[in-house]
Design a protein around this nucleic acid. Sequence first.
DNA 1: TATGAATGAGAATTCATTCAT
DNA 2: GATGAATGAATTCTCATTCAT
Lengths: 203, 203, 203, 203
Amino acid sequence: MVKTNTFQKILDGATLLFAQHGYDGAIMDDLAEQCGVNKASIYYHHKDKATLYENVLTALFIPIADAVVAAVELETDPVKKLDTHIKTFSKTSAENPCFASILMREMASGGVNMPARAREQMQRILFLLNQTLQLGQAQHIFQSANPLIIHFMIVGTINLFVSSTPFRQSLPITGQCDQLQNSNIESAAEQISKTIINSLLLK
Amino acid sequence: MVKTNTFQKILDGATLLFAQHGYDGAIMDDLAEQCGVNKASIYYHHKDKATLYENVLTALFIPIADAVVAAVELETDPVKKLDTHIKTFSKTSAENPCFASILMREMASGGVNMPARAREQMQRILFLLNQTLQLGQAQHIFQSANPLIIHFMIVGTINLFVSSTPFRQSLPITGQCDQLQNSNIESAAEQISKTIINSLLLK
Amino acid sequence: MVKTNTFQKILDGATLLFAQHGYDGAIMDDLAEQCGVNKASIYYHHKDKATLYENVLTALFIPIADAVVAAVELETDPVKKLDTHIKTFSKTSAENPCFASILMREMASGGVNMPARAREQMQRILFLLNQTLQLGQAQHIFQSANPLIIHFMIVGTINLFVSSTPFRQSLPITGQCDQLQNSNIESAAEQISKTIINSLLLK
Amino acid sequence: MVKTNTFQKILDGATLLFAQHGYDGAIMDDLAEQCGVNKASIYYHHKDKATLYENVLTALFIPIADAVVAAVELETDPVKKLDTHIKTFSKTSAENPCFASILMREMASGGVNMPARAREQMQRILFLLNQTLQLGQAQHIFQSANPLIIHFMIVGTINLFVSSTPFRQSLPITGQCDQLQNSNIESAAEQISKTIINSLLLK
DNA sequence: TATGAATGAGAATTCATTCAT
DNA sequence: GATGAATGAATTCTCATTCAT
């Protein structure tokens, strides 16, 4: 079953709108106008707002989890796996900043209302990380660490970095903090990866 | 000028509601009921929803920034300063979980609409961190690092940790990830602090 | 029974407010602020909004009707009586422009809701005019004319003139209509009086 | 672009309601019920109350100014022009009594808040009158007179006459004023016209 | 499929009025 | 008499959703 052009157009517009304004703040009228489709068309293609939101999250979360899993599985060395994990997650997050915004809002709500299929994707990523950490420990490369904290360090930091892009660029440039502006995602990922791996490695 | 009991009661209820549902999802009728006050009383004390939101953020952000600044200033050693910075921020965040939720939502929106007084508090924390890092570099204890990334590692991780508390507790207990449930904020802060400091220290 | 200072202060403020915004458009909060009194004080002195409105109209309409009746009764000649009628009404109207505004609004509502005591004052003026016209006819000075139309010509013209003062002064000055701006009430009353008397006089 | 049935139905109902109760006194719920349409439909077709009011005034004022201008332009003699001016204004005003009520309320507010397009229509009528008067003076038929006063005599008198119709019919029938009841607009217009023209004519 | 119009259920805010002190 | 606080009943406006074509 090939999805229509309109179906996708609405999905894309909705992704942006939900990212910018959250579920409650996203208004169907605005979505229709932004997409250049009639309001009734949205309901023709997506049942209702809640379903549309689920569709958005599914379409957004699955590719990211897929990419991380796929990239990590190509590696065998725990250190390489972890580095790839962090950098792939960073890269795919940065490619679609809506993911970070939406995930942050969901976490702010305690994740309670997150659609099951979206939640599952985050669990895939977390379990993957856990496997990598345990592999490293089994090989006496990593010391023991709470995988959830590591997961939060990766996701929390990258989410903030990605979603703060407009915010950072509006900061006043002061002599005190001259590195604030021109940070890019690659160098951020690099720093996060080094920090985490460095702290995990047995000396 | 002492604020009324009612003023504060509304402020507290609103803090919770905004944290749970976000600005658009928080409903004034619900707030009135939750606080046991008349709807019109809210407007008597707080002008309108936007102003109430500002009042909430101001009351929420200032004490946290104050606490971090005060605690860090008591220390002189850069390592101790950084450790105190992270632990004080963690502790005060955990004491009022609404802060994490609200900050995450604001960051999800790019921080663009955040009331100036709230944004200033985050800047105070960031600039304080920057000072500590520079002090450590000047004393040849720390290597160079992007303070913004460090800031995001602290804030992003703690935010996620705090706001995911209900989420974590709803996770299925699996053999794979048995450490997920019973994490407390102190051990999380400890791990974050160690990780960051360890990666900063010149070997 | 001497009315308080506050009673009168509220009455004066209310007169202005009702004139500017009408009954429905006048807001008790604004009145309190404008008068520099507490909102509850208004209710202490004036029962409720409707009563306050009645008080305003009574205080406004009686002196005007009194003045017209008193001035006309001093004259004996019908022409002089009519001239005095028009000029006294004009002068007293111009002295308190609120009268014109409030009367116009009441007439716009069909006069149906006008408090009885205020309506009686307008009837006093109309009956006085009718007496003058009949006197003139009995003396074969005036031809027959509908007194209501004459009444409307006087009241309608003066009301418009008085209440349009700010409007006129905001009109663009054009070569076409250079007399529009600097008209005063005396010359207006003079022209109205001449017009009406001239058309009534038997040739 | 043909306006919907509903659009017009709302416009008509609103005209009546604004005429009866003024802007502030007109209640949108009442309007919806009166028109037999859903409340939200009003906003679908007319944006908000202020816009609806503008739409009402525009639809009300333009045809009247058009009619007066068109009728006067058919005449060449200044006396005929002036007579036509007064009678056409009277007739069209009487045909839609809402015009008089709304205009009176606007003038009561000083005309300051009147939508530009409505104000322009009144200026068209005033300027037309001025032209007629100047033509009469140029032909040595009329003596000099303030056109604004003449305008106010016409408009103020007719407004009062039209809007007082229900008021007049509620007056007690007294021997003193037996002509008050059964006045019709044509005879009123006739008397106004005669009065004004008579006073303008050079003897 | 697409769309202009319609609508019921809210949701924010206002306002006249009252109450306790 | 005066006042800060409180409140019930509106009142304007919004929004997700549906319907007829």
